Amino acid sequence: MASNDFESVRAVLAPDFVLEWPQSRERLRGAERFARMNAEYPAHGPWRFTVHRMVAEGAQAVSDVSVTDGVQAARAISFFTIAHGRITRLVEFWPEPYPAPANRAHLVEMMD
């Protein structure tokens, strides 16, 4: 993904690859559509990725990644299912940031 050559990502996706975004209730089927969706997404520059954490066990993996094109910024939590060395299923959550509520300010410290 960091290469921004989304066509090359197809090599790690299974023929029956499925992506799900539960928040918008969308499902995308196939590596070709995944590559096209990423290539067509409106960006202000190349996408840059910061992997905060990745955990894997057996055929399952989870990542916490920040993404930016220099203008837009987002953070995604992604759940991967892998079979025969390829990603068969990806379920992603793209939560929106929000300001911390004032009513708990006395209990927390703000992160960078």
Results as ranks from 00 to 15, higher is better:
A2N: 15
A2S: 15
A2V: 12
A2M: 13
S3C: 04
D5Q: 07
F6Y: 15
F6H: 12
F6G: 07
F6N: 05
E7N: 13
E7C: 00
S8N: 04
S8C: 01
R10M: 10
R10P: 02
A11W: 11
L13H: 10
L13G: 03
L13E: 01
A14Y: 01
P15L: 00
P15H: 08
P15I: 04
F17M: 05
F17T: 03
F17E: 00
V18R: 12
W21R: 15
P22E: 01
P22T: 03
P22N: 00
Q23V: 09
S24F: 05
S24L: 04
S24Y: 08
E26C: 03
R27L: 11
R27I: 15
G30H: 03
G30N: 03
A31I: 05
A31F: 04
A31Q: 05
R33C: 02
R33S: 05
A35M: 07
M37Y: 06
M37C: 00
M37Q: 07
M37H: 08
M37P: 00
N38F: 12
A39F: 04
A39L: 13
E40R: 10
P42C: 04
A43F: 06
A43Y: 08
H44K: 14
P46M: 00
W47H: 07
W47Q: 13
W47S: 07
R48L: 07
T50N: 12
V51L: 15
V51Y: 09
R53I: 02
V55N: 08
A56K: 11
A56T: 08
A56P: 02
E57D: 10
A59I: 03
Q60P: 00
A61C: 02
V62N: 01
S63D: 12
D64M: 06
D64S: 06
V65N: 02
V65R: 00
S66F: 07
V67E: 06
G70C: 10
A74F: 13
A74E: 11
A74Q: 11
A74G: 10
A76Y: 15
A76E: 10
A76T: 14
I77T: 10
S78W: 02
F80S: 01
F80T: 05
T81I: 03
A83T: 06
A83W: 01
R86F: 04
I87V: 15
I87N: 05
T88L: 00
R89G: 00
L90K: 12
L90N: 04
L90D: 00
V91H: 09
E92N: 09
W94Y: 07
Y98I: 12
Y98L: 11
A100E: 10
P101W: 04
A102Q: 13
A105S: 11
V108N: 13
V108L: 14
M110S: 07
M111W: 01
D112N: 08
